[in-house]
Structure formats: C-alpha cells, structure tokens
C-alpha cells in the first residue's frame, strides 16, 4: 500500500446546527497506514466530523474528500469501513451470517477465516448476535467494518461501555489492522486509549482542533503529572517547588501540576514531611479540556 497516499482530506469545514457551531474551520488530512485518535468531550464535534467523512452530513462551507471521491458516493463507501456509535445489529442472525453478507458488498473482501481471526471471533462465529456480550457485539460491528478490506476504518467511540478486558482485546484488533497498513481514525474520550493506539492525536474542543500531534506532545503541552496531597497548615506555599507550574488549594487538599514528578515529590517530601494522602497521576484529558476552555474564556474576556 502506498504510504504517502492522502486518503482523507478535510479542508476548512464548518457546520452549524441552528445556533450551535458543531465544527469551526476544521482541516486535517490522513495518509495510509496512520492511526489517528480524535479526542474531545461530548459535543466537541467528533461524531459530526465522522458523519461528514461518511457523507451523512454535508458541510456548510469547506470540503471533504475520501481518496478523491465525494463522501457517501459509491466509490467512497467502497473505501471506508465504519463502526458507528451505538448501532445494534439484527439479533437472530449469527456472526458468520452477518459477516458473509457484508463481505459480499466489497470487491476484494477478506476471507471469512481472516476476518474472524482479526476480530477475535473465530470461536463465536455460529453464535447469534443476541447471545453475545457487549464487548463481543462491538467486535462483530468491527468485523463487518473491516471484512471488505477497505483502506480506511472509522471507529466512533468503539470502546464506550466496555470493561477493561474487552477494551484491551479491542485494542489488539486495531493493532492487528495497523500492522496490515490500514488507515484508522477513531474517536474516544480516553487519553489512555489514544496513548495505547494512536500515532497522532487530534484534540477537538467546541468544534475546533486545538491540538494536533503525538499524544506525548499533548501531555507535555499540558505539563506532565498531577500531584495531590493533604497538608494541615493552610498558610504553606508550594509554588517555589521545582518543576511545578500550577498550584490549586482546596482547603487542606493541595494539587500541584508538575513537569517532573520525581523532582517535585522529592523536594515536597523533604520540606513537608507531615503531609498525607500523597498521590501522583497522569494529567488527564479532563485537565486538557479545563486547560483549553480556560484559555478559551481568557480569549473571550480579552476580546
């Protein structure tokens, strides 16, 4: 597969639903063999963007092209396999019957055995859809998206509502695909998921792309780790500690954002040995949204 071929091209797309601006001048492009995670809160515009790629929405302005074709046209549909949010399949058909039918829509489908293997469904092929667990059902939806061997796979929140084990199994499916050179675009709430899978992260906030790059670069931009602890003296100050770039006080609960947790924690424990309940964790996506929406508000206030 040609690694430099641009498969998805979105140029300056805006879309409003009534007064709500769902997308504001979004541009992006995707090449073969890339895995991209589209991150954002509910209502950030992730599904709207996916719907534009599928031709289910048309942009108010700007343009979208799928391997040179209009989204939703027959050649574009041959190029994309999609797992839409919260779709349920007819329940009385078996996994195999569903996959056989969808494979027939495509000109060079995978073999049934291959599809079942990639989706981890070989053992379940004769089960009816209704007899599957949530994670297994999700894998069947995934299987019908990939059975035609399309060069692009779109996954709209593929792991919502799955338990940890099912989610990891699902990630393995996506890694298997990437190894075969498929271009994968997935939307998610979980930074962890983007971390585990994506070469690149697009962060959407209120219909705008606010960050594009690796998930590492996103975390760096957000400033690393969050350190939380309880300290009884409310007059104590922590801003001077090494690598700290943000401090929040909530009564005796203190929260530091640190670029280097090890340095900060060492100094912290030396200088304040009586603190308790110390935890250190990854800066979360939630922090990213707070970070970006605070910036947003500042912009609005300045304007």
């Amino acid at each position: 597969m040609n690694q430099n071929k641009t498969l998805i091209k979105v140029e300056n797309v805006s879309k409003s639903f009534g007064d709500i601006k769902a997308l504001r001048g979004v541009s992006m492009s995707l090449q073969a063999g890339q895995v991209i995670a589209l991150l954002g809160e509910n209502g950030a515009g992730k599904t709207t963007l996916i719907n534009h790629l599928l031709g289910r929405e048309t942009p108010d302005s700007g343009s979208v092209s799928i391997a040179g074709h209009t989204p939703g046209s027959y050649p574009a549909r041959q190029t994309i396999g999609a797992v839409l949010q919260s779709a349920a399949m007819p329940e009385t058909l078996t996994v195999k019957e569903h996959i056989e039918l969808f494979s027939s829509y495509y000109s060079s489908p995978r073999t049934l055995t291959n599809t079942l293997e990639i989706a981890g469904l070989t053992e379940l092929q004769n089960r009816k859809f209704k007899a599957l667990s949530g994670g297994q059902k999700q894998r069947v939806l995934f299987a019908i998206a990939i059975c035609g061997q399309p060069p692009i796979i779109l996954l709209d929140e593929p792991t919502v509502g799955l338990d940890v084990q099912s989610r990891r199994q699902f990630w393995q499916c996506i890694r298997n695909l990437r190894e075969q050179g498929t271009c994968v675009l997935l939307t998610t709430h979980y930074l962890e998921e983007a971390d585990a899978l994506a070469d690149q992260v697009l962060l959407l906030n209120k219909g705008e792309i606010v960050h594009q790059g690796s998930s590492e670069s996103l975390k760096q931009r957000l400033g690393g780790k969050r350190i939380r602890f309880t300290y009884s003296d409310p007059t104590a100050a922590f801003e001077h500690l090494p690598a700290v770039n943000h401090v929040m006080y909530r009564g005796s609960q203190i929260e530091l954002i640190s670029e280097c947790a090890e340095e900060t924690a060492t100094a912290l424990l030396t200088q304040y040995p009586t603190l308790s309940d110390l935890t250190i964790e990854q800066v979360s996506l939630e922090d990213a949204f707070i970070h970006f929406s605070v910036k947003d508000n500042d912009k609005e206030l300045a304007a």
Binding site: L54, G55, R56, Y74, R77, Q78, I80, G81, A82, L84, Q85, S86, A87, A88, M89, P90, F102, Y105, Y106, L141, I144, G148
Partner: peptide, 17 residues
C-alpha cells in the same frame, strides 16, 4: 426497528446497493 437501532445507517454507510 432497524432505523431506530442505527442498523439502517450502518448499512447505508457500507457499499450495499
């Protein structure tokens, strides 16, 4: 039913005639 379950949409996004 298939329309409400989102199944109709899945089929229409596929290359099904």
């Amino acid at each position: 039913v298939e329309k409400d379950q989102g199944w109709f949409a899945v089929k229409r996004c596929s290359p099904m005639p």
